[in-house]
Design a protein around this nucleic acid. Structure first.
Lengths: 358, 358
DNA sequence: AGCGTCACTGTGTACGCACACAAATATACA
DNA sequence: TGTATATTTGTGTGCGTACACAGTGACGCT
């Protein structure tokens, strides 16, 4: 009646080997104190049969508490990083019974020093974290701490972007170059090859921000050059906090360039530009943007933004934490480079992506 | 040191209530044999505190084996339903330690009777299935069996499409109408409003096939009429098995209508048409299709197909089975209607969706 | 021979829960 | 009042594993 194939447990192996469960356990966990002969015998049996440990029973018996730290930028309400944090929390909840705790550390995304401070705090906390998930916005600072973590044998996962020189347990994020390339393709599916295009970016004097946005821009440009488009590109620089200045800048830009037909912005704050386009009724301007934020969705729905390109931030964080549990609890190998799908969102399909936040 | 918030277990509740763990267990599972007074006392405590049962320990202690049956069309290699079956297997593997078995029953997707046979077999098997996942291609037959399952209190989940009159535990699938609508939008982003468009469909004399494909077509048409497009539409009917006939049909169609600029096909077998377009170098024809099959992807990559619209079949099946485990094992409520995102696939982003089959 | 040391191995308890069974208490009836 | 019978409650074992601890035997030493 029981249609489950009989599972093999430690006791079965012990009987087969003519030893006790304790000895098998010692071999399984490589805890020593087993004679070479016995060890070989047990390992031979393990190779023969298909022993699948019950990780749930194991977690139940083990007293080990796992502390995973996450280091991400401050979460503005409705902003990008809030979605990331939701993914962290979802993973924590799901792993609650495995005695997993996720501690989130925040830093100011415009200050490499505050990132360093957060990393210091993580590495100095007690208990020592078992693993660290981080968004490596600043390469030099990141390298300092990945090195430290490697010395201390603390596995770490990158989300959002990655530092190629480091050796994380895993990376979850978008191929930014390709997402910029796709952005161009979508924009030019609505514009003509010869149109004038405006590209907006935020003021960043110290080049502090990661290369994600830069890479998207590179991808965009590579589409233009690869397809020999003769479009003209004008640039607008936005301020992170002074919205009035932004409006006057855009007013000026569109006055001086009344022939602008398309607009692109590679950060998640497309709504800044879209709000302007809507207010000043520049309906003839086709716009693309990035990331599924409520404020962006609003403009997608009313057709100010034609396409949004998204990267599943919630899932990145969720999978990042899950990678640790796969590693520590389920003892599985985790693929190292995991590119998220580059989702294309339109008026027509956005609804179903919104529902998707699990 | 232990930073886990102290978890409440049955024993804690028992102590608080001044009873034994067995009694608390009886209340938790509503197994009777508890005096009203004791029951009230325990329930009061349960309302007060936040007791979260450890479902892993629970599964460990319970001897219950869950048998979930899945009823889906036969899986041709490389075909759509193979992806669905992969999702079923992934879910089964993940739930292995919970003593969950997934039994897959197949039927001929062109024969309602064979569907009925499969459903009969499911309902007559021993042990009686705890739940049934099905693709309700045929509404009348489906209704017969959903009624039977409701009588026997066997929960069931729909994937792929749904029957509105039934009352499944959950549904996972695409909003077909909307995916047809989006298909039109994407096609006309590449074609002009006045172009001639060819729509292909497979010969289906008995109208056996579910309304999914019909709904997509309706969605397509509603886009055309809503936007007052003056395109001309010609139709081609394909045969499921006679490829030679298909080629001659298409030759004739494109000869008689040399001004066809766009092509759409609403089943998963876009490759039949794409193969023709490629072979006869009809590069000027823009084509859209459905579903992420290897054979379709080939034509997306070489630009014969401009857009593929996908619906995550693997995930539908996976989530369908997971819905049962949520229901039975984790005692969670499952949202009933779950539309999958309508993914837009292009040459530029397809790579990352292929990696995703996890 | 007696002793300690060491390398190895077996045993027992606990994890949180389900469930069979034993025990205790309440109720009915002669 | 005593006995039989329900009803309610407590206890104990096992699920598969981890791990502390106890036990065994070989060996070398005085």
């Amino acid at each position: 009646m029981n249609s489950i194939p009989q599972k093999i447990k430690i006791k079965d192996i012990a009987e087969k080997a003519g030893v006790s469960a304790g000895t098998v356990d010692r071999v399984l966990h490589d805890r020593g104190n087993v004679s070479d002969e016995t060890k070989r015998k047990i390992q031979a049996i393990l190779n023969e049969i298909n022993y699948r440990p019950n990780h749930y029973a194991s977690a139940l018996a083990s007293k080990k508490v796992f502390v995973f730290c996450a280091v991400i930028p401050n979460c503005e309400p409705g902003g990008y990083w809030e979605l990331v944090e939701q993914g962290l929390l979802r993973a924590e909840q799901e792993l609650y019974d495995f005695k997993v705790v996720v501690k989130v550390y925040h830093f100011d995304q415009y200050s490499p020093d505050s990132f360093a401070e957060a990393m210091e705090a993580v590495l100095q906390q007690t208990p020592v974290p078992d693993a660290v998930l981080l968004a490596p916005l600043y390469k030099p600072k990141t390298m300092i701490y990945t090195k430290k973590m490697e010395e201390r044998e603390i596995p770490y996962v990158f989300i959002d972007s990655r530092v190629e020189e480091a050796n994380p347990l895993a990376f979850y994020g978008q191929d930014s170059l390709q997402s910029g390339y796709l952005g161009a393709k979508l924009l030019f599916s609505q514009c003509s090859d010869t149109d004038k295009i405006a590209i907006f970016s935020f003021f960043d004097p110290g080049q502090t921000l990661s290369n994600q946005i830069a890479l998207r821009m590179d991808g965009f440009k590579s589409y233009v050059s690869k397809n020999n488009l003769s479009c003209k590109i004008v640039r607008g620089t936005l301020s992170a906090n002074d919205q009035e200045e932004n409006v006057s800048m855009m007013k000026k830009l569109f006055k001086e360039n009344p022939d602008i037909k398309g607009a692109a912005i590679f950060s998640s704050r497309a709504y800044v530009v879209a709000g302007f386009l809507e207010k000043y009724k520049l309906n003839h301007v086709t716009m693309i943007g990035y990331d599924l934020l409520e404020k962006n969705v609003k403009y997608l729905k009313n057709n100010t933004i034609s396409y949004l390109i998204a990267q599943r931030p919630e899932e990145q964080a969720y999978k990042g934490i899950k990678a640790f549990s796969e590693h520590f609890i389920f003892k599985k190998n985790v693929p190292q480079i995991n590119y998220m799908p580059i989702d294309i969102l339109t008026q027509e399909n956005i609804k179903f992506y919104l529902e998707q936040s699990q």
